[in-house]
Simulated scan of single mutants.
Amino acid sequence: MTALIEATNLSKQFGGRGLFGLGGKPVRALCEVSLSVARGEAVGLVGESGSGKSTMGRVLLGLTPASGGSVRLDGTVIANLKGEAARGLRRRMQLVFQDPYSSLDPRRRVSAQIADGLLAHGLATRAEIPGRVATLLDQVGLPKAHADRYPHEFSGGQRQRIGIARALAVGPDFLVADEPVSALDVSVQAQVLALLADLRARLGLAMLFISHDLPVVRSLCDRVVVLYLGRVMEEGPAAAVFERPRHPYTRALLSAAPNIDPLRRRRRILLRGDPPSPANPPSGCVFRTRCAWAVAACADAVPALDVAGPGHRVACIRVDDPELAPDTQPDGHQ
């Protein structure tokens, strides 16, 4: 499939000047990450807290400038766009926030907040706004009569639906959903996920779905990208990554996820220690200090993403080692 949004060797670092501009080491949030999302495709971005997931989403949207690499929308480098071209870009790329409670202004009616984008981009006159808002509320499963209410009058799930309606108001092609259901009850999560899946199918949206909840990602996404300390460890079709994960980090993440199949036993793989500081990452493979399969050679060079199957790539020098076959476990792990 042809990519709608494409990031190439994307890097982002913060700081590095220290107090009063002196000293201090830069914090590397992303390091040479390449990722693409085709029109109508949902790609899951997973990893522990601090792995760079939210930074990736913000850089793709142009909300945070990249330190290196490029982001293209339909082949156009977004950093090169200025003026009206940049305004058009913002309309095509939208964000659904994690927290439905703080993402809406409590002092403004819902109708006004949904209408902001329509007015800013000249997509509707003030006379047309009530009808457009009613249509958007219906699209996300809310009655049009709710348009004149304030955010405190809604539940968390309803607020997230309003946030989705606000993002859809300008007719985007690409949607970044940053942990959009993590603040919701489980039953409400399922409803919002079903809504996102339905909207993607009906509107042909490309979606980057950021989450630490692996079962949620599996239910919604076509492909999965696994980040650790700002680097891609594994990427591929969701079925391949979840059924036969090849990277030790992916396997550890999946072993910690809830197992809903009582007939399928899963051994827990415990990670060693805490994640290293992004200001002082390990040499070679950044995961090696916590990896049960690490060998001395893992410290020598950053592993390239090598092919492990159709559309499936893994950054591990031992990926073809029989000891790391998908059904094996490290010694001492249960």
Rank of each mutant, 00 (worst) to 15 (best):
R200Y: 12
A201F: 10
A201T: 15
A201K: 15
A201S: 14
R202D: 12
L203D: 00
L203T: 04
L203G: 04
G204S: 13
G204H: 10
G204K: 12
L205F: 03
L205K: 07
A206Q: 10
A206N: 11
A206C: 12
A206R: 09
M207G: 13
M207L: 15
L208P: 07
L208Q: 06
L208S: 07
L208E: 10
L208Y: 08
F209Y: 13
F209R: 08
F209H: 08
F209L: 12
F209N: 03
F209E: 01
I210F: 01
I210Y: 02
S211M: 08
S211R: 13
S211V: 09
H212G: 01
D213Y: 05
D213N: 15
P215Q: 01
P215E: 02
P215G: 04
P215F: 00
V216W: 03
V216P: 11
V216F: 03
V216K: 07
R218M: 07
R218V: 08
R218T: 06
S219W: 13
L220M: 15
L220F: 15
L220V: 15
L220I: 15
C221E: 09
C221I: 09
D222P: 14
D222C: 12
D222L: 13
D222E: 15
D222V: 11
R223S: 13
R223F: 11
R223T: 13
R223K: 14
V224L: 09
V224M: 11
V225H: 08
V225C: 10
V225S: 07
V226F: 03
V226M: 02
L227D: 05
L227C: 05
L227K: 04
Y228C: 07
Y228R: 04
Y228T: 08
Y228K: 05
L229Y: 10
L229E: 02
L229R: 12
L229W: 07
L229M: 14
L229G: 11
G230F: 13
G230H: 12
G230I: 08
R231P: 00
R231E: 13
R231Q: 13
R231T: 10
V232L: 02
V232T: 09
V232Y: 04
V232M: 01
V232A: 03
V232K: 03
V232W: 06
M233Q: 11
M233E: 08
M233Y: 01
M233W: 02
M233N: 03
E234H: 02
E234I: 00
E234T: 00
E234L: 00
E235D: 06
E235K: 09
E235Y: 08
E235M: 10
G236D: 06
G236A: 02
G236F: 05
P237S: 06
P237H: 07
A238L: 04
A238M: 09
A238G: 02
A239H: 14
A239S: 13
A239K: 14
A239F: 09
A240R: 15
V241Q: 01
V241L: 07
V241S: 03
V241K: 00
